[in-house]
Design a protein around this nucleic acid. Structure first.
Lengths: 205, 205
DNA sequence: TCCCACCACTGAGCATGCAATATTGCATGC
DNA sequence: GCATGCAATATTGCATGCTCAGTGGTGGGA
């Protein structure tokens, strides 16, 4: 379906940062650029608006700029979900999940993360490994929705060496709690990990 | 906007149970019934599909029927969010929140709930009071999304006197933890409360 | 009688036209 | 020089027509 393709394209452009907050999104312009009619573009707009990525202001679509308060709120929701993911992972991780989790935390990955070369990717891989071990598809998709904002990438990219190191230790602690089957502790650590990264955003700005 | 009105109408019809799972939703039919053209109906379909309420099967829209596994997944997500709401409420509830929370748990409300007369409403009022005290708009809207499924209402309606009583006690315990400012305990109790109601669905079916 | 092929029909995907409305720029007056 | 009102323009909201895919029904042959 064209409308699906348009939606994916626009969403990627917003999250990746090609389209900036407050930038107007003009139906006809996008339609021409993507070589489709306005109809699939309109349908994509509805979905992007439901995702909270764009908003209609005075009969115009613009990329939405989240206020600091809203970013904090999103992080609080995400903290709850990452906590639940870690909890369920500690209960349910099978052999394959454990292998994946151990894999994303090996010495090689640590080097890449701490050096900053692939910090965003390594970070995502860890959180993906946890959520995957939770065996809950809905939780997975909700967490993807929460990570679907432009500001997430910026956060991890703003870490200095000290914070990268601290963040990695937290990952290790969460993984250990999961692998050793301590759901309450895993949930607590994961929640605090997200809360911690949240406070960093606001200290910096 | 017509498309907004159509969306609200259809969503309400699905959640309320006027439209049944697997029932086909025909664009032209709905357009005629609601006296609008097919365009706003199409746009509503996109949003309903994003909500997971309808699904396109072989080029036709039908009301989606969640599998038991998916219902369990949704409850696990909701457990995490209600837990977080209770945690934040324990940290942040102001005088007005406390009054509301006490109000929905007074002797009169208890009577109405236990007698079964207004069980669904009283249940929603309690959870609303908690989420309101959490002072997090995003968490509120995510929780509303989670309660937006037809099966939720059916759950509370299937409670017998014993379960109603047990459920009320859990509400009281959560409220106490919030009012006395014990976030960890409030979160734990709220999460277990949702998990508990979840297990009931599956024991019954 | 049963099975298969073909055809008509239903309904969604997309394009486009038209109307309504908000915005912008310009002219005019104070 | 600045404010105000009007006209032109930009852009969305909605309606409708066309096309194509999937479905079901019907007729003919084994």
């Amino acid at each position: 379906m064209l409308s699906e393709r348009v939606y994916q394209t626009l969403r990627a452009e917003i999250v990746h940062g090609d389209l900036w907050p407050n930038q107007p999104m003009i139906e006809a312009e996008i339609a021409e650029r993507l070589k489709v009619s306005r109809t699939p573009v309109r349908e994509s707009m509805q979905r992007l608006a439901a995702d909270g990525l764009i908003v209609s202001r005075r009969r115009r679509w613009v990329v939405y700029e989240h206020t600091p308060e809203e970013i904090q709120e999103i992080y609080e929701v995400r903290a709850a979900l990452e906590g639940q993911a870690a909890r369920l992972a500690a209960d349910r991780a099978d052999e394959e999940d454990r292998a994946v989790l151990a894999g994303v935390l090996d010495a090689d990955a640590k080097q890449r993360f701490l050096s900053g070369r692939a910090r965003v990717e390594a970070n995502e891989q860890f959180h993906d490994a946890v959520v995957r071990a939770a065996h809950n598809q809905r939780l997975t998709s909700e967490l993807i929705r929460m990570r679907l904002y432009g500001f997430n990438t910026r956060v991890v990219n703003s870490y200095d060496a000290d914070l990268l190191s601290r963040s990695w230790s937290e990952h290790e602690a969460i993984a250990t709690a999961i692998l050793e089957g301590r759901p309450d502790q895993a949930a607590d650590l994961a929640r605090r990990h997200v809360e911690h990264s949240m406070t960093i955003i606001f200290e910096r700005s």
